[in-house]
Design a protein around this nucleic acid. Structure first.
Lengths: 348, 348
DNA sequence: GTGAAAGCGCTAACAG
DNA sequence: CTGTTAGCGCTTTCAC
């Protein structure tokens, strides 16, 4: 109805409704006072013309762009996408759109993206990473807009969101114990990761002792090696393995099957991350701890908007609960609590 | 230097440089004519004050926001992220930022995101999907801004980018033949997918005959089943399997190993997608066809900007070449042509 | 109740 | 070569 030339402006609406531009503006924004009749007439005119207010003009006055930026160094997307989905879900209804900026670990690239966003007057920035004990390669202090951190370390006194690894790990190990497992071991990633230490300490707390923790890399092959180490000797073997992530868990499950050890009958296995592609394709499918990344994203979106609107937000680190997604590898309840129905289809 | 209050405006720069606002504008944009001395003085003042032009004010006049939108229904992120990375890479230097909008397959959500972006005066939109024979659940015709399609079907006469599956598959099968494989079979996804038919026809063209094509699902388990079917009978067995995607390939490789059949010594396997997490963790790592999604993204970014700037762009479908990434599963050259060095680290 | 006028921060004619 | 003037499309006092 308005193809080609200029889009319809509030001026056109006002003329059609036979009011002034000022009245039209008030009518459409439900501000000011006027007859219901007038307001409706304006709204009808707007609808008829397909009027959409120019956000730039509005933003220029209100000093808000209804735009926020997501800065991330997680190129691989494991963390970013769910977080992004959550942010977006929390903000679309409020008319806020999100700039996604992947900055690798390149300070220069980070600077470029940050500047571009600041020029565009973003209302706030969410910094997201893949390790809670590492910072993004770009300085976000003293910015003219609020910043919320998700899954990455923030400045002193900033608002930070992380998953509650301790609680998640606790649930995982308790789940194993509840299924009568007596000899639970923990096979995990490099001890240098804060989350590795956190998960291991939860494991120890639940089993009430030192237990047995094997540190390695985040790979399937490490899962294989760990099984070789654990089952390579005579004597008692574990009857459950709590893994630091799903890839390790998959390696463990595969290695056990190759040795003729039944999962979950003889050994229960639980992973961490609930990375669909890995967890659901393992045979049997993995019980795994889900970090609720989308919820973290929603919360980050909500908080950054509160800050943008000048509302007070208590600084500090907020831990959001994980949830255990039970599949077959832990032998537990048959009830599968997955969100998705089938497999994610691959290749186009 | 400007903490708290209003940001510095061009007015402040002008005053410090002792020129008018108009001159300051021209100096900073390298337009108009003036003494080098004046220009430099203004620039120095801008630097000193840390002046960053307000993109909204500028956009309001120029009717450009230096912003584009990426609309996608690929929640899973397999396709979107690399494409997004490419777009972003092609546009940051030009000062363009990208709105990422995941719309699932929800028309209402699509509409909301689309409206939000149009309100923000995006200069263009890139529509991206996961199947070249499916459309996004939102009508993108008659928009006041240009649209470029990537990996999803566009309107009649639109600009569309896809990977050249035929060429990619051809390279894969020729690679197998070049390594003296005589009985190559093709295990792939559902025949309803255009890309499945395309890949299969390339397979047939290269081997010069009907060959043997097994259609199934995009899963690892289908790879297992296919092996059971192919090796379940007596007589001659294949010496190479060209798979429709990496998940199937992984299933095939695992199933072969379980049967004691050596990969790549007895059977060569090639996958499709080059999905790092699957390809590199398979034992042995998968040779696979990479669709160069990032290149598709770069091209999409470049094209949408050309269109936004009013330059003519030939409509039609453009196929971008795939490249074969050789790892161990095909036995070929030991040379590994991977981009990344190590494993993607998992869970923080 | 409604409208005229000012102005957000910047750029682009057009004078001087 | 530089400054003055007029807006971009919208919101918002403040009169009427």
């Amino acid at each position: 109805m308005n193809a080609g030339g200029g889009r319809v402006r509030i001026y056109d609406v006002a003329r059609l409704a036979e009011v002034s531009v000022a009245t039209a503006s008030k009518a459409l924004n439900d501000t000011g006072r006027m007859t219901e009749e007038t307001r409706n007439r304006v709204k009808a005119a707007a609808t008829e013309l397909g009027f959409r207010p120019n956000a730039m003009a509005r933003g220029l006055i209100q000093k808000r762009s209804f735009t926020i930026g997501l800065l991330t160094n997680d190129t691989y997307g494991r963390f970013t996408l769910p977080v992004m989905a959550g942010i977006s879900a929390a903000l679309v209804d409020r008319g806020v759109s999100v700039f996604l900026c992947g900055i690798e670990d390149d300070p220069a690239l980070g600077r470029v993206h940050l500047d571009a966003m600041l020029d565009k007057q973003v209302d706030g920035i969410i910094a997201s990473g893949k390790r809670i004990d590492r910072r993004l390669p770009v300085d976000l202090s003293d910015l003219p807009v609020p910043v919320v951190y998700a899954f990455t370390e923030g400045q002193e006194g900033s608002v930070t969101l992380v998953s509650d690894d301790f609680q998640g790990s606790t649930e995982a190990v308790e789940h194993l114990l509840a299924h009568d497992r007596k000899r639970v071991v923990h096979v995990t990633g490099p001890e240098t990761f804060a989350s590795v230490r956190e998960r291991a300490s939860a494991y120890r707390a639940v089993i009430g002792g030192e237990g047995r923790v094997l540190y390695g890399t985040w790979s399937e092959s490490w899962g294989h090696e760990a099984v070789a180490e654990l089952w390579g000797t005579d004597g008692e073997h574990p009857d459950a393995v709590f893994c630091g992530n799903d890839q390790i868990a998959r390696g463990v499950v595969d290695a056990l099957r190759e040795r003729g050890i039944k999962v979950p009958e003889s050994v229960s296995v639980v992973g961490f991350d609930n990375w669909e592609i890995v967890a659901s394709q393992t045979r049997p499918p993995l019980t795994s701890v889900d970090m609720n990344l989308e919820a973290i994203g929603r919360e980050a979106g909500r908080l950054v908007l509160e800050l943008a609107e000048g509302k007070p937000v208590e600084p500090g680190v907020r831990k959001l609960p994980c949830r255990l997604v039970i599949r077959q590898s832990s032998g537990g309840d048959a009830a599968v609590t997955e969100r998705r129905g089938g497999l994610a289809t691959a290749a186009d």
